[in-house]
């Protein structure tokens, strides 16, 4: 079973890089560049995990995260936040709002991959999670 990842990111180059990395790891990646419509995309696509940039056009990634956590349908959905701001308080805010992980740009590809795999495994939907049924 392939994990479905929704990537919400407005920087085209970063989008391309992450998509490439995750696809190569066997995940199905859909990208979305607009913060305002990200929640609809979540409903439509029903991903196993969301990689969410903080600084998005039109709507902040933190706002989207808050909405996800307050909706029963998505409150348990794993979210990995991406940020280029790199300040401790941003990280605390994100984790406080219920993000599963927090990645500061620039990140190591393998590290990102490890984190995603780890989260997905914990949720029992990991790529290699056959044992979990």
């Amino acid at each position: 079973m392939t994990n479905r990842i929704l990537l919400v990111e407005d920087e085209a180059n970063i989008l391309e890089a992450i998509t490439f990395i995750l696809s190569r790891a066997g995940m199905e990646v859909r990208s979305h560049g607009n913060g305002a419509t990200a929640l609809e995309e979540v409903k439509r696509y029903a991903p196993d995990l969301i990689v969410l940039d903080v600084m998005l056009p039109n709507r902040s990634g933190l706002d989207i995260l808050r909405d996800l956590r307050s909706d029963p349908a998505t409150e348990a959905l794993p979210v990995v936040m991406l940020t280029a701001k790199g300040q401790a308080k941003d990280r605390d805010t994100a984790l406080g709002l219920g993000a599963d992980a927090y990645l500061t740009k620039p990140f190591s590809n393998s590290e990102m991959l490890e984190i995603l795999k780890h989260i997905l495994a914990e949720r029992g939907t990991g790529v290699k999670g056959g044992g979990a049924g």
Partner: peptide
């Protein structure tokens, strides 16, 4: 500072990500 951080980290993210891809 936050802005500068963002402006600097964004291209660096692409550079790092693609250079790692290229290295593999």
């Amino acid at each position: 500072l936050s802005q500068i951080s963002h402006e600097l980290r964004t291209p660096m993210t692409s550079i790092r990500a693609f250079s790692e891809i290229l290295m593999q």
